[in-house]
Design a protein around this nucleic acid. Sequence first.
DNA 1: GGATTTGTTGACCAAAATAGTAAGGTATAG
DNA 2: CTATACCTTACTATTTTGGTCAACAAATCC
Lengths: 164, 164
Amino acid sequence: MRLTTKGRYAVTAMTDLALHQHDNGGRPVSLSDIAERQSIPAAYLGRLFASLRSHGLVESWRGPGGGYRLARSAGDISIADMIEAVDERTDNTRCRGQVNCQDNHKCLTHVLWSDLSQRIQDVLSDICLSDVVSDAQVREVAERQDAMAKNRGGAATVQWRRPC
Amino acid sequence: MRLTTKGRYAVTAMTDLALHQHDNGGRPVSLSDIAERQSIPAAYLGRLFASLRSHGLVESWRGPGGGYRLARSAGDISIADMIEAVDERTDNTRCRGQVNCQDNHKCLTHVLWSDLSQRIQDVLSDICLSDVVSDAQVREVAERQDAMAKNRGGAATVQWRRPC
DNA sequence: GGATTTGTTGACCAAAATAGTAAGGTATAG
DNA sequence: CTATACCTTACTATTTTGGTCAACAAATCC
């Protein structure tokens, strides 16, 4: 599990999604809105959302008025879930999961690292999206971002469609 | 703080050093011995040790019989210390420590990430080299590695010299 | 003093991963 | 039919990583 820009984008975008999920009567939140609010390249973010979707973290709707919504409750999505979804595991141990990496036994690195990465995984699994969303600092930034956003269009009509 | 091969090498090599510090009457442990035992390219490891040294984690002696020893007690060197020493911080937030990364304020990513990386830092700061060395699995691998090593030369004479 | 050993430093390099772009395709609303 | 918005693939540029090499400096041994 590595902390990289890709994972950061994913967490940021998911946080934005969680924060705006109930705007406009709960209609899906569009990619371009998220990208603009969070200053993330839209085309790049689109690919990240494809991963988030294939990992079952979000649902998507196509066509006008389409966009994304969380597929599970925010309390049920951990930071680890989001990072894992976009950060396709490029094996961390160089041992390719094998146990006979040196002299037909485990190498020292192997022993050290599996424990260490598990601990980090645990930390990230222990924080969920709802924790993030309810954080005071996060709310403060979000409110400023909303204030910044142009008021585009009036209240939308509530609609329900089946996700893709 | 990122978990990469470089940091893994550092932790592995430091662990090896700690384990063999009292061999041969406490004379410095040579780079080539560590590299061979842990299957790490010697030239590469040499550069990592240069970083470890400049960060005050090891002391070095040149010339025949030279090598490295821990500069502090193993209980006083954390995993975070070792990784930080070799993994020259390539700023994790893209905001370059600035606080006005979006709209003249903190961006959401900034808020999220500084907290998250702090938590990981805490985990890695909480484990020290002596914890690693006393781990049962680690000792087991180390003993096998020692058994593997050729018996080169008899007991060396004890010597004391000032580090570089 | 000279050869040898061992760490130190800098320049350099190749391969991989990352971050990002572009373009064509599919589904849906109106 | 057209505009919207997600979906997918292919491509590219840049950065980082992991690694090598050679020259150099210090210490020891003879």
